[in-house]
Structures are given as structure tokens and as C-alpha cells.
Nucleic acid binder design. Structure first.
Length: 311
RNA sequence: CGCGGGGUAGAGCAGUUGGCAGCUCGGCAGGCCCAUAACCUGCAGGUCGUGGGUUCAAAUCCCACCCCCGCAA
């Protein structure tokens, strides 16, 4: 059948998957089923919330399932699977049900940065460019042969948030551009150079703790890489409030401060400088636990006199 | 009922033995200066989140509700 209208099952969960799903629908592809993760308790009140993909799929009147049901998928006789940030492993017997196999978008220049945090890791390492890669899924994580790739510059002020959005859009466009040729059998896949592979780890909340003995440049990378999640924070002792966790939203590298060691700070008019292992960080925006994001000038007005030390 | 912080001038904050509502910045007017984000003088700007209660008197104590945020997931 259906070079023209293959029966597609879409796997995805968070926002990263939305542009691709939107574009597929817009281009009139036949999405037979959307599979996403189960609703998760989320937010302060632990309200059971569906994934971003589920919300969109319902809005588009697509059928949605939250489970990987072998029989159900088999019955659909799907032609193609498309996985974008699904978040779960897809077993081989399910993969084998798809005539054209299962494709996966990964936000890095594979084989570099396999695993769960490629976007953040690229910024954290100070990379100047990254990519989104379309691969054909195989048995191992982010390991399958490459179908297409689209590279992108990482700008000076890029955060994980902006880069995430950019790659999500570019990935969608890349997939849709290649899809017709792929289905027509015109695409030759290229195996990854596995010996060059590198892996990223799952980020945890505590990875955001700032180590002031690091170079200011590295800390500046971290601020952008971990924004908005998990964020970068430090503990501040206030004379009047005790110790509070303070999130550092953004800051620039600045020359070293004479006579200060890593972790010491200096408030100079509207600047809040913290000495690092090398150079210092000129903090621009921050947020106290329980308060909103504020620019540093406002922080100094309200809290400047009461800062005792940083940890 | 997951834990916790908060709502006071345009902004960020202080202000509980209940007793005239404050600080820094910004705004406006004027001054100084070659000049300035510097400095000096003056002015404006508040239903202290909302609704009840206690009291001679509530930002402050009690009750209910609304909103914002941090943690956790």
C-alpha cells in the first residue's frame, strides 16, 4: 500500500515531541495511534497530569494509549514507528511489527552524547555546535544507523531551554523532509562510528549545586546548561534569614577579585561578584527559595546588607 | 490532605511586648558640575492580598478564602 499514507504509530511524551507530532498531522500522515507514558503526579499538589503529547494528541483527536501492548499494536499492522523522547525502552518484538521499522529523533550529533541529557551536556561542555539526528532504532540505546542529521550552532547566550526548542523544531522538519524518501527506499542508512560514542548521564537535582572552586567559565556554562532544569544553586547565609538556597539564573565571567578565594563574594554598587577557582562570576539574575526571579540590582537593594557568606 | 516560604509605594525588601507605615532603587521638580549611572534639596506615590473576628486601637493576634514561589515527584 501506501507509500503515500503509511500507518504510523507515534511514541513520545514531553514537549520535545510536540513539533514532530504537529507537523506529521499537518502533513496529513496517518497517525493510527499515539503511545505515551502514563499520567504522572506532578506539581505542588501532586495532581495526576497527562504528558504533553497526550494533551496534544487528544486535542487533535488522535487515539492515545499509555501502554506498550503487543497484541494491540500487532492488530493495527503498523507500517512505521516514530519515537521522539518517549522515555521508555521499546522491546524487539514490538519493533519487529513495523514494516518500515522504527525511527528515532535524538537531540545530539550521534554518536556523540547518547543517553538522557544530550542538550544540557553539549552546553555544559562549551560546545559551539550540536545537532539533531534521525536514526533507525535498534536494540541498544541511541545506537542505530543514521538516516539524517541537521546541525545547529550553539549561541553565546543559549540555554538548554532555547536549544531544546530549536532542536525540537529542527528535528520535526528533518524527519518530515526525509520521510518520503525513506519510505520510498531511497535512503541509505549509515552505521554510527561506535568507537567514537560518548554518553550522557541522567541529571539529578543535586547536580545543580555550584562548585565555586571551578573556573568561572565552566560555571557560566553550567548556568546555561541547567536552565531551567535542574537549575544552578548555592547556599547563602543571611544575617536576618539564616541559610537559604539561592538559584543563580544567569551570570557572566569577570576578572578575578584581588585577595579573595573561591566562594568569597563582593558587592560593588549594582554588581554581585563571586570569586571562582579562576576568574569570577558576575551574577545577573537570581532567585531565592520561595521568591520570584529577580535581577541582581533588586537583589542587592533588598538583601545586599544581609548577605554573610556563600557555600 | 506530601513538606515549606511569601503577598507592605512603580521595583526589591524592613517592620509581632498591637500604638502616627519605613529603607534602598525608580519617577517628578530643582540644585551642583565641562559632564555623569555620581552628589545635594524637595515632591508625589499605600484599600499593608480578600472577607470576617478580637480590641479604645490590628500590617502585627484569631478564623476562612484567593494568588505567587521553593522543595519533593
Amino acid at each position: 500500500m501506501k507509500d503515500k499514507n503509511p500507518k504510523i504509530i507515534f511514541f513520545g511524551s514531553p514537549e520535545f515531541a510536540l513539533p514532530t507530532l504537529k507537523l506529521l498531522v499537518q502533513k496529513k500522515y496517518n497517525i493510527a495511534l499515539v503511545i505515551t507514558q502514563a499520567d504522572q503526579p506532578i506539581g505542588r499538589k501532586q495532581i495526576l497530569t497527562p504528558t504533553a503529547v497526550k494533551i496534544l494528541a487528544k486535542k487533535l483527536n488522535l487515539s492515545v494509549s499509555c501502554e506498550l501492548n503487543f497484541e494491540k499494536i500487532k492488530k493495527l499492522k503498523p507500517d512505521l514507528g516514530i519515537v521522539v523522547a518517549y522515555g521508555k525502552f521499546i522491546p524487539k518484538e514490538i519493533m519487529d511489527l513495523f514494516t518500515f521499522g522504527v525511527l528515532n529523533l535524538h537531540p545530539s550529533a550521534l554518536p556523540k552524547y547518547r543517553g538522557p541529557s544530550p542538550i544540557q551536556t553539549a552546553i555544559l561542555n562549551g560546545d559551539k555546535k550540536t545537532a539533531v539526528t534521525l536514526i533507525k532504532l535498534d536494540q541498544q540505546m541511541d545506537h542505530g544507523p543514521i538516516i539524517g542529521t541537521k546541525s545547529v550552532k550553539i549561541k553565546e547566550n543559549e540555554t538548554a531551554e532555547t536549544l531544546h526548542n530549536k532542536l525540537a523544531e529542527l528535528g520535526a522538519v528533518l524527519l518530515l523532509k526525509i520521510l518520503p524518501d525513506y519510505l520510498a527506499g531511497k535512503i541509505k542508512t549509515v552505521p554510527q562510528k561506535h568507537q567514537q560514542a560518548s554518553y550522557t548521564k541522567l541529571l539529578a537535582r543535586n547536580d545543580g549545586k555550584i562548585q565555586w572552586q571551578k573556573k568561572a567559565e565552566e560555571i557560566a556554562y553550567q548556568l546555561r546548561a541547567f536552565y531551567p532544569w535542574p537549575g544552578s544553586f548555592t547556599e547563602v547565609n543571611f544575617k536576618n534569614l539564616g541559610t537559604k538556597r539561592v538559584k543563580i539564573i544567569s551570570g557572566d565571567v569577570s576578572p578575578s577579585l584581588k585577595g579573595l578565594v573561591a566562594g568569597d563574594f563582593k558587592i560593588d554598587k549594582n554588581n554581585f561578584l563571586v570569586q571562582c577557582g579562576q576568574n569570577s562570576l558576575n551574577i545577573k539574575k537570581l532567585q531565592l527559595a520561595g521568591k520570584k526571579e529577580i535581577i541582581v540590582a533588586e537583589f542587592i537593594r533588598g538583601y545586599g546588607k544581609n548577605i554573610e557568606s556563600l557555600k
